[in-house]
Design a protein around this nucleic acid. Structure first.
Lengths: 246, 246
DNA sequence: AAGTGGTCTAGACCACGCG
DNA sequence: GCGTGGTCTAGACCACTTG
């Protein structure tokens, strides 16, 4: 009875730390400014480096910090709004400057994609690799899976081999009538190859946008685009611009 | 010269571990099955517990595992597709069973929301708290910010106090004509109160869906909905159902 | 009370970017 | 070569759930 419980809910140290640093970020740091290094920060707050890192990880997840090995930790700019609205209803690669074709190969779709395509998982499909660039920085890497059935006027050698092959597939795809598309967004972690192209470490959090392109009652193509979760805010608006900047 | 470098690219242990366990999950475990505990797994793989945990964290981020303190680690079911398509163009709370009103209070919007509402940050707004339930489980917690200007026929006492007040605000809002809406999705970490309602730990990854409701050339309301990133896949489709289930 | 995952420590070494 | 963040260890204790 005698003791009044002042700290009834002892919140974790890293959580408290995250909030403290977050507030400091708002008031005492400018975008792009570099923070003291982790060993220094840990010492300053009187915690182990691992605990300090847990706080920084959260802030990076929220897009407020950017950490680069060999360089340091900097204050991140506000997230970029990236338009992924589905209202345009066009095939990938039509009025293009946002996406650039990187490569085209023949291969087989992963199981989950094969199901969406309604294709035997061992069956060979065209795979087009594209990169989305915004303001000079890569924001997304895409794998576009196109069954050979969707682009009959194309040989395997046409489709393969560098950007030219990739563009050939996109061109053939655009000859079909697009009946509709649906799209989903979920959290994922970057595969090794995507991470390399996005200039991130393997496993970093990404937003995975899966789009199914419908034509003639079939799924004509499936796109799996992985967006950097730290720097991107996906926008779907009619009016597009949900600016939160100052 | 003598030694041939077989492991030219030493990938991190936790990464390799993640892949090994991930494959085991596909082949040797059923949904809902509980894994051996972390100390046991770490010993079995010959790594420190922290390293093992790093691998499990990634798998949980990808929605493949579910960990609960005091209980254990279980194999997660495939993510639930949650429809968040914007095509309906309706005010929140119209043909409702997916969302349930929890509470209504008067308060002031956080800075980022105040900017979207074009409202002085100190100005009092109605705040409606809602919970989205899918298949009996909470999947999202929402804060709906409604400036008093948008619902002039409502006193502060009408709006406050439990579910009834919340529903009063929604009802008034529906009297306006909805001109449009736009929406954005980004990664965030759960605030303490959201985490509690979603049955997660504070800071767990969430998908933050911000919706702006436009009426009469103004932003009549802003909704900030946080979805559990581990269990949810947000769908935007015309045809809605992007099922990846077996 | 026992067993689980969650937090935290104090160290060590590694991989990378830059001067 | 030096300083940075990234990985890893071996241990301790805490918070929670369940029998």
């Amino acid at each position: 009875m005698g003791t009044t419980q002042l700290e009834a809910v002892p919140e974790p140290k890293y959580w408290h730390l995250k909030n403290v640093i977050g507030e400091a970020l708002d008031s005492e740091f400018a975008v792009g400014e570099i923070l003291p290094n982790e060993r220094e920060l840990a010492a300053r707050f009187g915690v182990a480096r691992a605990t300090l890192r847990q706080a920084l990880e959260q802030l990076e997840l929220e897009g407020r910090l950017q950490r680069r090995r060999g360089v340091g930790t900097t204050v991140a700019p506000p997230r970029v709004g990236v338009d992924v609205s589905t209202t345009q209803h066009v095939w990938p690669g039509v009025g293009e400057d946002t996406w650039q074709a990187v490569d085209g190969v023949a291969g087989q779709a992963p199981l989950a994609v094969a199901r969406l395509l309604d294709v035997r998982s061992a069956e060979s499909v065209h795979i087009v690799r594209r990169l989305r660039v915004s303001a000079g920085l890569p924001v997304a890497a895409e794998l576009l899976y196109v069954p050979e059935l969707s682009v009959p006027g194309l040989t395997a050698t046409d489709a393969a081999g560098g950007p030219a092959g990739a563009r050939a597939v996109l061109r053939e795809l655009q000859r079909l009538t697009l009946d509709g598309q649906d799209r989903s967004v979920e959290l994922g972690s970057a595969r090794a190859d995507d991470a390399r192209e996005l200039d991130r470490l393997p496993g970093s959090p990404v937003l995975v946008v899966t789009t199914r392109y419908l034509s003639g009652g079939r799924t004509a193509a499936v796109s799996v685009a992985t967006y950097r979760a730290d720097t991107c805010r996906l926008t779907f608006g009619d009016s597009g611009d949900l600016a939160m900047a100052s």
